[in-house]
Design a protein around this nucleic acid. Structure first.
Lengths: 210, 210
DNA sequence: TGGCCACCTGACTAGCTGGTTAATAATAAA
DNA sequence: TTTATTATTAACCAGCTAGTCAGGTGGCCA
């Protein structure tokens, strides 16, 4: 066994335990909130002794930070982007589809993010102030160009982004409500595509792109 | 002083204290979540001794229930309805405007509701299952009639309701994020009307009503 | 005057909280 | 094998939690 393999193996125990803990923690934080999720409840869900949790993460806040970071990374990766060179119709379609798919696939990620924002974004102020604000400005500029060139109707680009965000994430954050109203136990494959079709249809028409 | 006056006066002390407590409690529940909000923190915010809080509400869960009830009542009152006899354009316009105004005026109400749903709607299952499901069915039927009579394009009525809900409540639930991205300290009067105009514009066009 | 009742609250408690420690086991390196 | 590092966990603790309780206060009516 080479030195590299050993390091890898050692790292694997750490990595595996951490993933196990973070998965359990994410669920607990979503179900109970930050204060409601106890280190003990996370330990129980991860099937590890409490002290083991605190061996890998110095304290509860560190666990939460790690969960939040992990979640944002995953979300940003999965969403892709709004591409300039494809024209507004394809760009918006692709963006809506990616966001809806993420919402149905990883509702917990969206939920934990939503709760953080609702409660005042104490742990995410910097994220919104730097990364997110920059992203919105760039994309708004792009939409404005499409508007100026007559490729889409004159709608406020920033509010358009908010609309797409809210409409897509709604299916993750409010899944309980939606399932209850639709009298369903779970979502199915078809639902995802139906939601994508609906949102693309109405938003693209709203932007004068159909 | 008549007996009626005494009852009224006695009731007033109760009512006043309860309102004071519920107002403080709502803020604490939004900021800290159910478990994070302690009876002590509610007492501090209401500027009353903790034991006084528990004199008016038997326990913490009762406070939460009262907050939730109070909130839902207020929300339902303020939103009005989707009226059948006005035609789709006016009906949707009025509904969007009312929801946006409520979101800007009482963001805490929307937030506490959102947190409850995100965490699994443990205290609201019945509300969604009976009242809300019924409401959605009625309104969906109405939209379907407008679609069938060619007054609006063929979009899924239920998902249209979800879209309006999400887009309007977004300004309450995610106000922190929106303010940060827009680089603002607070919303102003103009913002409300601008959001209403934007959402009406894009959604009505999306429904083929412009 | 004295009894009634709504209101108020300091002091208390049992149980849970996040977090520490110290002793042990497993694994890798020499 | 020996040694060093990493991983594991029972036992413990100080502080906070929701909730109780007993002893008040003050207003009103007979």
């Amino acid at each position: 066994m080479t030195s590299a393999n050993q390091i890898k193996k050692t790292g694997n125990i750490r990595a595996k335990s951490k993933v196990k803990i973070l998965t359990a923690a994410r669920t607990e934080f979503v179900l109970q909130g930050y204060r409601g999720a106890t280190v003990q409840s996370i330990a129980d869900r991860a099937e590890l002794p409490k002290a083991n949790i605190l061996y890998y993460f110095k304290n509860k806040e560190n666990i939460y930070h790690a969960v939040l970071e992990h979640t944002l990374e995953m979300w940003d990766e999965g969403i892709g982007d709004i591409e300039a060179n494809e024209g507004p119709k394809v760009a918006i379609e692709k963006f809506i589809a990616a966001k809806v798919r993420m919402s149905f696939k990883h509702p917990e990620a969206s939920k934990i993010y939503a709760m953080e924002i609702i409660q005042g974004a104490q742990h995410l102020k910097d994220y919104a102030r730097t990364y997110q604000r920059q992203w919105v400005r760039e994309k708004a500029k792009l939409f404005q160009q499409w508007i100026d060139s007559g490729e889409m109707v004159n709608v406020d680009p920033v509010h358009l982004i908010f609309l797409i965000w809210s409409a897509t994430q709604h299916y993750a954050d409010f899944e309980t409500q939606i399932l209850t109203i639709m009298n369903r136990a779970d979502f199915e494959e078809d639902d995802v595509e139906q939601v994508i079709a609906f949102l693309c249809d109405i938003i693209l028409r709203g932007c004068g792109l159909i």
